[in-house]
Computed example of a mutant assay.
Amino acid sequence: MPRLVGRAKRMRPPEQLRSLDLAPRHLSLLSLLLLDGPQTVSQLADRLSVAPTTASLIVSELSRKGVLERREDEADRRRRIIDISEKSRTAVSQWLSPGAHAWRQALQPLTPAQRRLVIDTLRGYEAAVAELSGAVD
């Protein structure tokens, strides 16, 4: 596990993103948007297991930097949809796609039951670390 985390930390962002001081919290949010598409702040908060205000702060920070954009939800004009801006999409994809492709490549030969075991094990590890460190979700 330390090698996996270390390798992820060494993934340097593309030149376009380097000056933006992106932190792990940004990486997680950008990964969700890149892999799962546009979402609301509430959906992002739920997926990241953070308070909606925390997700909103991260979205605001990345929006000010031009990495994200907000648009009205056509189905409900009171809601805003968050997405990676067109000017940043290529750089974000270049940065984060290798990790997603690596996971797909590693999990592809496994049976669905084996994949479930890997995911459940990683979630168990995450829960144990949170419990032992006193972190609260």
Rank of each mutant, 00 (worst) to 15 (best):
67 V>I: 10
84 I>D: 00
90 T>E: 12
73 D>Q: 06
121 T>I: 09
105 Q>A: 15
118 V>Y: 09
25 R>Q: 02
71 R>I: 05
59 V>T: 08
82 I>E: 04
34 L>Y: 01
34 L>Q: 02
136 V>A: 07
109 P>T: 06
79 R>G: 05
10 R>P: 05
58 I>E: 03
28 S>M: 05
26 H>T: 07
117 L>E: 05
50 V>Y: 02
82 I>T: 07
114 Q>P: 05
59 V>Q: 01
35 L>S: 09
30 L>N: 00
77 R>M: 04
55 A>L: 05
65 K>Q: 04
68 L>R: 04
65 K>P: 01
113 A>W: 15
6 G>M: 13
51 A>H: 13
6 G>T: 08
103 W>L: 15
94 Q>K: 11
122 L>E: 06
19 S>K: 12
38 P>Q: 07
49 S>T: 10
53 T>D: 09
22 L>Y: 00
128 A>Q: 06
53 T>Q: 12
14 P>W: 10
70 R>T: 06
102 A>M: 07
125 Y>A: 10
136 V>N: 01
4 L>D: 08
120 D>S: 08
65 K>C: 05
77 R>S: 13
51 A>R: 12
48 L>N: 04
128 A>T: 08
42 S>W: 10
115 R>S: 05
49 S>F: 03
62 L>E: 00
47 R>Q: 09
34 L>E: 00
86 E>Y: 08
101 H>N: 09
52 P>D: 04
109 P>N: 07
52 P>F: 06
126 E>R: 11
68 L>P: 03
1 M>P: 13
107 L>A: 08
20 L>K: 13
66 G>I: 11
8 A>D: 10
58 I>A: 09
134 G>C: 04
37 G>L: 02
38 P>S: 12
68 L>N: 02
17 L>P: 11
83 D>A: 14
69 E>M: 11
121 T>E: 05
137 D>L: 12
102 A>D: 12
107 L>F: 08
69 E>D: 09
11 M>S: 14
137 D>A: 15
134 G>L: 04
46 D>E: 14
12 R>G: 06
75 A>N: 13
33 L>S: 02
80 R>L: 12
88 S>C: 11
25 R>S: 02
117 L>S: 05
73 D>Y: 08
117 L>V: 13
11 M>P: 06
84 I>Y: 00
101 H>R: 12
16 Q>H: 14
65 K>E: 01
101 H>M: 13
105 Q>I: 14
24 P>G: 03
132 L>K: 06
31 S>R: 05
77 R>A: 07
42 S>I: 13
38 P>A: 13
75 A>G: 06
57 L>Q: 15
105 Q>Y: 15
12 R>Q: 14
64 R>Y: 00
45 A>K: 03
85 S>D: 06
109 P>D: 04
78 R>K: 08
12 R>S: 06
106 A>D: 08
37 G>Y: 01
